[in-house]
Simulated assay, not measured.
Amino acid sequence: MTDDDTAEDRYGPVPPAVRTVYGPDDLGSVPAFRGGFINFGCWDGIPLDGPLTAEDRERSERQLYRRVLDALGGGGRRGPDGDGRGRAVEVGCGLGVGCALALREYPYESVTGVDVHPDQVDRARRANAALLAAVPERLRLVRGAAERLPCGAGEFDHLYSVEAAQHFRDVGAFARECARVLRPGGRTAVASFFVPGDEERPGAARALAERLDSFASGLDVARPLGALTGALAAAGLVDVRAESIGESVWPGLDRYLEEIGPPAAWPRNFLGAYRDGLLDYYLVTAARPA
């Protein structure tokens, strides 16, 4: 067994496509994901009938984070003299810029960012070096799997995940970890894309693999929405809700990809898959009983 194999056993397996895309391929450096948030964006309020700018793209990515963090409640955004309260953890934090946004704009005492890929954790620490140096007690960036979080029981008031759950291999284990690390009354919010419905749809999985490289390669999993909502309920979480936000995501993403041209042409099939009912984008929320 190599040292790398030992690390995999400790942190959980990293699927080959995930290892490549977030390792040497460095998805965060791709123009379609400029700004470092690595999400498809929430395009509400951004006009789509004219040219889209790089600033529009970054705005969409920040807006998706805000939509998720707003869904958690707990005091709203931080005011100029607002006191921090509560602890949050982001699962699949990537470059950690979403953690930094949460600290800047929301009343959290601290935010912990967890990512399974060692390269992403290293990049996140470099990207947030100044913040880590200024307030080391408020930001922590660590390696860990969604199914095996390196966190204590009842450690957090809020757990959130932005466009990472499509990579999780065991949503049941992830849901149990949500229940374990949240304090009583704590809340979770997950934004990601799923196949609509409660049951596995082999036909949808095949169609998505034919249209989109990310499904064909195994980077993304064609999982029904009900797999996540059912797992959260089975783990003992309550008030499990799922909101479709596809109209806020897919048309804007497609328009931006049209603007930046052929190198990013293949993801434009996301909009077609959404319109054909094969895929949708959801914001899922739940709470641990008080």
Results as ranks from 00 to 15, higher is better:
residue 227 A to V: 06
residue 270 F to C: 07
residue 160 Y to M: 01
residue 52 L to N: 06
residue 118 P to S: 02
residue 176 R to D: 05
residue 206 R to T: 14
residue 162 V to G: 03
residue 200 E to A: 13
residue 205 A to V: 08
residue 69 L to V: 13
residue 258 E to S: 10
residue 30 V to W: 15
residue 54 A to N: 14
residue 81 D to W: 13
residue 152 G to C: 03
residue 209 A to W: 03
residue 238 V to A: 09
residue 248 S to T: 11
residue 286 A to N: 02
residue 174 F to S: 08
residue 113 G to M: 01
residue 148 R to F: 07
residue 33 F to N: 12
residue 112 T to M: 10
residue 154 G to D: 02
residue 160 Y to W: 08
residue 92 G to R: 02
residue 266 W to D: 15
residue 268 R to K: 07
residue 87 R to F: 09
residue 63 Q to V: 04
residue 183 R to K: 13
residue 63 Q to L: 12
residue 165 A to S: 11
residue 126 R to N: 11
residue 202 P to H: 02
residue 224 P to R: 01
residue 55 E to C: 11
residue 16 P to C: 12
residue 221 V to Y: 10
residue 64 L to S: 04
residue 19 R to T: 12
residue 160 Y to A: 00
residue 194 F to Y: 11
residue 99 C to L: 02
residue 107 P to F: 08
residue 36 G to A: 07
residue 157 D to H: 07
residue 8 E to K: 13
residue 87 R to I: 07
residue 52 L to K: 07
residue 119 D to N: 12
residue 283 L to N: 00
residue 76 G to I: 03
residue 198 D to W: 05
residue 21 V to L: 15
residue 162 V to R: 08
residue 172 G to V: 09
residue 229 T to I: 00
residue 169 R to H: 12
residue 175 A to D: 01
residue 12 G to N: 12
residue 159 L to D: 04
residue 126 R to G: 10
residue 266 W to V: 14
residue 253 L to M: 15
residue 254 D to A: 11
residue 290 A to F: 08
residue 218 G to F: 02
residue 122 D to N: 13
residue 254 D to C: 11
residue 194 F to Q: 04
residue 178 C to A: 08
residue 82 G to R: 11
residue 287 A to G: 01
residue 133 A to G: 11
residue 257 L to Y: 09
residue 39 N to P: 04
residue 193 F to V: 10
residue 176 R to N: 03
residue 53 T to Q: 05
residue 164 A to W: 07
residue 254 D to G: 06
residue 33 F to D: 11
residue 236 G to H: 03
residue 133 A to C: 09
residue 31 P to V: 11
residue 182 L to C: 03
residue 252 G to Q: 00
residue 128 N to L: 15
residue 5 D to G: 12
residue 163 E to G: 00
residue 180 R to L: 01
residue 60 S to G: 01
residue 238 V to C: 07
residue 181 V to E: 01
residue 11 Y to V: 15
residue 71 A to Y: 06
residue 244 S to F: 04
residue 36 G to T: 10
residue 165 A to Y: 12
